[in-house]
Design a protein around this nucleic acid. Structure first.
Length: 565
RNA sequence: GCGCCCGUAGCUCAGCUGGAUAGAGCAACGGUUUCCUAAACCGUAGGUCAGACGUUCAAAUCGUCUCGGGCGCACCA
């Protein structure tokens, strides 16, 4: 696509007095393809040339003669519209896709650079529930986007395996849990203990003190506390892994908060030496009042640390270990202030890389009647949701395609794909209300729709049965539905770039919906396999390219693309 | 009280680094299958882009304010 833009710029350059860069940013794509493929608005020139933009467009258009890849230049109102040569465009786009295959969309802008992505990061001793989905899926997709751009990506699961809550859990376990010590504990048992603790603590506030005391023991290395903690952690990790496997999410490191426990002392010492901290109300804080923020707490009055402290230590450790170019934290927007505080402390410590840490936030997931809460047991477990989704797809397969092979694998790909797509589809800044019917709707702008479109294309290719060739007559791909689709396919690389730049996987979802819509319109209007050999070859080439783009896009989102469904 | 996010069709959303008639899906109604998977496609209906003022040749898009919803604001993460 750059090829056409460059030609247009060089065409305009001689006629108007603007730097290339500016012409490039001014160039736009008309709302309707019938108006042209690119357009240059003349409003800006009106002032300097003292003529109306319509007149300028008219004069310039007359002056610019089409050539080579530009088929026509036409003035429409205040715009100069450019029509590219369809054959050249089709050939450029489709040949690129067929050459690059699984690598179509890849770039090397990130070559040699490392990006650390901190995502999912659940607290242990609790189930993974639907509200954990967003961080995991958005983080995974961002990781994949950056990989596509050539970055080395390190996906880190920063497990919440440290903090006062483990004191609470130990107290609960000792009081109400240890009598069934011989039966194998599950996360459900741990969760029940956690809920019970909070119920009891409302009646007896002394429990909270006991919990803090236990956490203090844990932090100072008490073997008994540590053993229990490790036990809880093992139980949790096992269950988490099961869900991550279902979702197809991989981490390069499972490094929880506890890992940094040995480093926090050193971190605090350096903060103190820089004179950044002071004691206030018996706690050690970094005063952030000059920056209009509440203080960042490093140490509580009982001397134990807080997560901000561990986050600072973790950031320093990661910088040393990975020498990242950028570090991305995919964490809910309710933690915005925490990240602003902790990034500011990094900056004050003199870390010039502090501005390369970004908090990629996202809106809250809640129920119609309010927030989800583990404490109150008001959650939908992730596992239940995934099983339900796969179950419903299984039924639909039974009804629509009972002779399908590998039904189970396909049901899993489609059911889980539906959940992933539904979550990734909306811009991350929006709050989402969890609704079974919405997540489990499989028609229209959904994951199954994209997968179905992909499967149909595979089906055509199977039926065709011969090798796909690039030796086709590109001028045959000229109908409206066909050309719109080809242009759309050519946008894929720039969509990935934008999705990575804005940390916004929803852009890829929307793009895929677009491609599928265009494909299905093409599919309905034109038969691919016909007696006309040349035409069939040409359309097959397009079908194969579309199949490839959908597959590549889904892969970034973390969704499988079954060949039949 | 202060700060951040959101407010576009009945519902869910896209469009928001300003530009040519505000787009999809779901739901409703009507249509398309002798033909490559109808999990699809086409059509009809549906909008004071929360509101006001401002900047601009041009505002859903930028700024200020108001209203409505969400989140956060020292020993939780």
């Amino acid at each position: 696509m750059d090829y056409f833009i460059k030609t247009i710029i060089s065409l305009l350059k001689g006629k108007i007095d603007l730097p290339e860069e500016e012409i490039k940013t001014l160039l736009e794509i008309p709302p309707d393809f019938k108006m042209g493929d690119y357009a240059f608005p003349c409003y800006g020139l009106a002032k300097t040339l003292k003529k109306s933009p319509n007149v300028i467009a008219g004069e310039l258009a007359k002056d610019l003669h089409a050539g080579k890849p530009i088929e026509a230049v036409r003035a429409v109102g205040p715009y100069i519209n450019f029509f590219v040569d369809k054959t050249t465009l089709s050939e450029t786009v489709l040949k690129t896709i067929s050459k690059e295959r699984d690598g179509y969309g890849n770039k090397d802008v990130g070559k040699g650079k490392t990006v650390v992505v901190d995502f999912s990061s659940p607290n242990i001793a609790k189930h993974l529930a639907v509200h954990h989905l967003r961080s995991a899926l958005i983080g995974n997709a961002i990781c994949n986007s950056y990989k596509t751009l050539g970055y080395t990506c390190v996906g880190i699961n920063h497990l919440g395996d440290w903090g006062t809550q483990f004191g609470q859990l130990i107290v609960a376990y000792k009081k109400w849990g240890s009598e069934n010590a011989h039966h194998t504990y599950t996360v459900t048992d741990l969760n029940n203990l956690y809920v019970k603790f909070h119920q009891e603590a409302e009646k007896d506030p002394g429990l909270e003190d006991e919990a803090r005391a236990w956490f203090k023991k844990l932090e100072s290395g008490d073997p008994g506390a540590k053993e229990l903690w490790q036990y809880f952690k093992d139980i949790s990790l096992q269950e988490f892994q099961k869900i991550y496997d279902m979702l197809g999410i991989h981490f390069d490191a499972f490094v929880g908060e506890s890992f940094y426990n040995t480093m926090v002392e050193d971190t605090i010492t350096r903060i103190k030496e820089k004179g950044l901290s002071r004691v206030s109300e018996q706690a050690l804080i970094v005063d952030l009042e000059p920056y209009n923020m509440p203080p960042c707490l490093l140490r509580k009055k009982d001397d134990t640390t807080l997560y901000a402290t561990r986050d600072i230590a973790a950031a320093e450790y990661r910088k040393k270990t990975y020498d990242f170019d950028r570090m991305i934290y995919v964490v809910g927007s309710e933690q915005k202030l925490h990240f602003n505080q902790f990034f500011k402390v990094l900056e004050l410590m003199g870390h010039n890389w502090a501005d390369r840490c970004v908090h990629v936030d996202f809106g809250l997931m809640k129920f119609k009647d309010g927030k989800m809460s583990t404490r109150k047991g008001k959650v939908v477990l992730l596992e239940d949701l995934l099983i339900e989704a796969v179950g419903r797809i299984r039924k639909i397969i039974e009804q629509k395609n009972p002779s399908l092979e590998n039904k189970e694998a396909v049901a899993s790909d489609v059911g889980i794909g539906a959940v992933i797509f539904a979550d990734l589809c909306t811009k991350r800044s929006k709050d989402v209300v969890f609704d079974w019917d919405e997540v489990l709707n499989f028609e229209g702008e959904t994951g199954p729709y994209v997968q179905y479109t992909h499967a149909r294309l595979c089906s055509i290719l199977r039926k065709y049965g011969k090798p796909v060739t690039a030796e086709i007559r590109f001028e045959l791909l000229k109908e409206d539905e066909t050309f719109i689709l080809i242009k759309n396919l050519g946008q894929f690389p720039s969509i990935i770039l934008k999705a990575a730049e804005f940390y916004e996987p929803s852009l890829i979802c929307n793009y895929l919906i677009d491609v599928c819509g265009n494909l299905n319109r093409f599919y309905n209007a034109h038969r691919v396999l016909s007696d006309d050999e040349e035409l069939t070859k040409a359309r097959i080439f397009l079908v194969d390219a579309t199949r490839q783009v959908i597959k590549n896009g889904l892969k970034i989102l973390g969704i499988h693309a079954p060949e039949q469904m």
